[in-house]
């Protein structure tokens, strides 16, 4: 055996440095939520306080966007779960004419830059004179969330032994019983993971949303406005922490749900 498994020092330092580069900036968000300085981004903070959490709680302009974001994320997750699982069930094992085109169509909404998806929807709403509403936001979100559920579900479908479905039919179960008693329990955690990721993606989405929301404000749009025209800067940090945690926790859960399999949660974002 060659003992070549020890990495060169230079490589180790740059690799770990790269990972730190990816993670350290987020910590600043947390630090600045406690600063006493509300006008600038002075570092180090002149003093520390927890008052901004209370201030944020009492700011009435935060709650409606939060509700809207949660509503949109929940609804688009449900829609993505239904549409994505149907696609995965159809595509996991069968080969048919046009299959590749359909996979491309599923991936496209997330593969193209958000601005194209957003501008496309905006163009369509303009042509068809559709007024902005929760539904217009939802149309965009559900579309790019389908692929997240699809990826997770299709990987699990492929990992399941195909003969367990046959075994169920063989033992007298019809298609619906097989779905309920065999497919769904085995698909469950993959769907949960896919749903978590879809929720996180939707909750945090801003680029497509700005094109489909009109005058409505989701939490990310609220944050974006605060970034451009700040007032009480640390409050933005408090909201950023809320957004961060609301997306971070589902992602972590999704990772643990799909760990150990060939599938990787979120590999397809």
């Amino acid at each position: 055996m060659r003992s070549d498994s020890r990495p060169p020092l230079f490589l180790t330092v740059t690799a770990i440095g790269g990972l730190l580069f990816l993670h350290l900036p987020i910590l600043l968000i947390f630090l600045y939520a406690f600063t006493t300085d509300e006008r600038t981004y002075q570092f180090p903070p002149p003093g520390l306080t927890t008052q901004w959490f209370a201030v944020a709680w009492n700011r009435e302009d935060i709650w409606p966007p939060l509700y809207l974001s949660l509503k949109v994320a929940a609804l688009s997750t449900v829609m993505a779960l239904i549409l994505g699982t149907l696609c995965a069930a159809a595509m996991a094992r069968t080969r048919f004419f046009g299959r590749d085109q359909i996979s491309l169509l599923i991936i496209l909404p997330i593969a193209l830059p958000g601005i194209i998806t957003g501008m496309s929807l905006r163009s369509a709403f303009s042509i068809m004179d559709i007024p902005f509403s929760t539904w217009t936001i939802l149309m965009g979100h559900a579309t790019f969330c389908i692929v997240i559920v699809f990826n997770n579900a299709v990987a699990r479908f492929r990992r399941l032994s195909g003969s367990i479905v046959e075994a169920s039919m063989d033992l007298g179960a019809n298609g619906f019983q097989t779905f309920r008693h065999v497919i769904l329990p085995n698909l469950g955690s993959a769907l949960l993971a896919g749903g978590m990721l879809a929720f996180a993606l939707s909750f945090d989405e801003v680029i497509v949303t700005t094109f489909t929301a009109g005058q409505q404000s989701t939490l990310p749009i609220w944050m974006l406005n605060e970034l451009v025209r700040p007032r009480q800067r640390p409050v933005t940090n408090v909201v950023a922490i809320v957004v961060f945690v609301t997306t971070f926790v589902p992602i972590l859960i999704a990772y643990y749900l799909t760990r150990g399999g060939a599938e990787t949660a979120g590999g397809g974002k």
């Binding site: 990972l19 990816l22 993670h23 900036p25 987020i26 600043l28 968000i29 990721l197 996180a200 993606l201 945090d204 801003v206 990310p220 944050m223 974006l224 970034l227 933005t236 940090n237 950023a240 957004v243 961060f244 997306t247 971070f248 992602i251 972590l252 990772y255 990787t264 949660a265 979120g266 590999g267 974002k269």
Partner: peptide, 16 residues
Amino acid sequence: GVMLPLWSSYLVKVYA
């Protein structure tokens, strides 16, 4: 370490 930054909030990262 790579996946979490990929998925964590875009806007929060920009703000950071």
